[in-house]
Design a protein around this nucleic acid. Structure first.
Ligand code: MN
Ligand code: MN
Ligand code: MN
Ligand code: MN
Lengths: 223, 223
DNA sequence: AATGTATTTTAGGTTAGACTAAATTATTTG
DNA sequence: CAAATAATTTAGTCTAACCTAAAATACATT
């Protein structure tokens, strides 16, 4: 039984996990867009993932998929690899936080459990990756994430940045430049009803900055 | 033109390089044995490698293959990855020298040129891997290897161990135990005509040891 | 409730890289 | 040098993971 979980399957499961995180089922089209694979091919793979034993997803025609516990464990394994690798590349090999994603996205599929354990040890069993994303534990549970989008804050609210989306290097370079990094405090000076722009003061920075929703939806904070 | 060099092709080229090292052409059967692939499948791949452009091997029916310059460069790229990775795993992550081969054999195909450069830098641009094997340079040339098999030495000769075969963990653990490591000096106390056994004194060790040809052919020394 | 649009699935096909069985060619040995 | 044996190649299949085009279904709007 217990089928081989290929690189391709790992990528499907990882993206299904991320789409499921907000309680949504993962739709064929969303997955196709994320994975850069034709929707028809995604349907084929989802049907396969649902019919292996143990099943990795629950599939109902036209209604997208959710992960089974087996699928979730496989997904968390890959995500743990990814995030540990990202942090290791930064800490040990001097990568900057906008460079790590692509490298980790490949290597995540090929490191051994031994390698994973040694890297975790070398890093002191960290909780978060360079972008503040939570690292699943060695026993494959995902810690609770208490954060909400910066975009949901309003004038005079105060919060601490916890994590940022890591898939756009240009955004990461910009955030580094304006000092919006994990664990940094921000104060909302103004919220614009018209465009959703936030004007905010960033701890340690002289001038205020204005950020649109394309950015503030990708920054997560705790109040 | 310039075809994609897949993981599978990289493995073929690497093993062809190693078989070619002693001036021999790489035979279908030898490759099949090393790669754990049926001879018929190897023939198919060799014909393909000979017909891509630029050609990666020179193939003549029933006579095995040799690498073209393009094939050699691709092979050296993989071998450089492998040996840098092995040394990095030992130096940075605490692997022992009998544990690194399998991990490096997978990762060699998936690290970026950037990763390679950073690892080389972190290691101070080393010349040899943990087993004493020479690391191809960044511009893909293989340094001269001046060593010869320990098995070719005779009574009263003195030599320095330069490298050992890295593909048998049990042998590596044994060599570690008896102190036969790169840069260690040995003196041949006796050579047996009958079985080829060598009795030798190893620098830093109390008692003499006797090694059969299965071992002495896999240890390389300089006089 | 009917129609148009968006989403998803089905059907049929391609490619890389493996396999086995059978045929061919090369090499060794009596 | 002929027969046996070993090495290699050919021919035909298989599987995973993708593709496109067409069909089916679901959903949104009037
Ligand atoms: Mn990936
Ligand atoms: Mn990250
Ligand atoms: Mn390999
Ligand atoms: Mn080695």
């Amino acid at each position: 039984m217990s089928e081989i979980i290929t690189q391709s399957i790992q990528d499907y499961l990882k993206h299904i996990y991320e789409l499921n995180e907000n309680g949504n089922t993962a739709s064929t089209n969303d997955l196709a867009a994320r994975l850069n694979i034709a929707p028809a091919s995604v349907t084929g793979m989802l049907q396969k993932l649902a019919s292996v034993s143990p099943a990795l997803v629950v599939y109902k025609k036209h209604q997208g998929v959710t992960l089974t516990r087996a699928g979730e464990k496989a997904a968390l394994e890959v995500i743990r690899h990814h995030r540990l690798l990202e942090l290791y590349l930064v800490k040990a090999l001097g990568y900057s936080w906008d460079e790590v994603h692509a490298e980790a996205d490949r290597l995540e599929h090929f490191i051994s459990e031994d390698f994973e354990a040694r890297v975790a040890e070398a890093l002191g069993h960290p909780e978060r990756d360079p972008h503040g994303e939570l690292i699943p534990t060695a026993d494959l549970t995902m810690p609770m994430d208490e954060s909400c989008p910066l975009a949901s804050l309003r004038t005079d609210e105060t919060a601490t940045v916890k994590r940022v989306s890591d898939d756009d290097p240009a955004l990461l370079r910009h955030l580094l430049e304006i000092g919006v990094l994990p664990e940094v405090k921000v104060i909302i000076e103004n919220y614009s009803e018209l465009d959703g722009n936030l004007t905010l003061h960033v701890e340690g920075q002289k001038s205020k900055i204005v950020l649109g929703t394309a950015i503030t939806k990708r920054i997560f904070v705790e109040k």
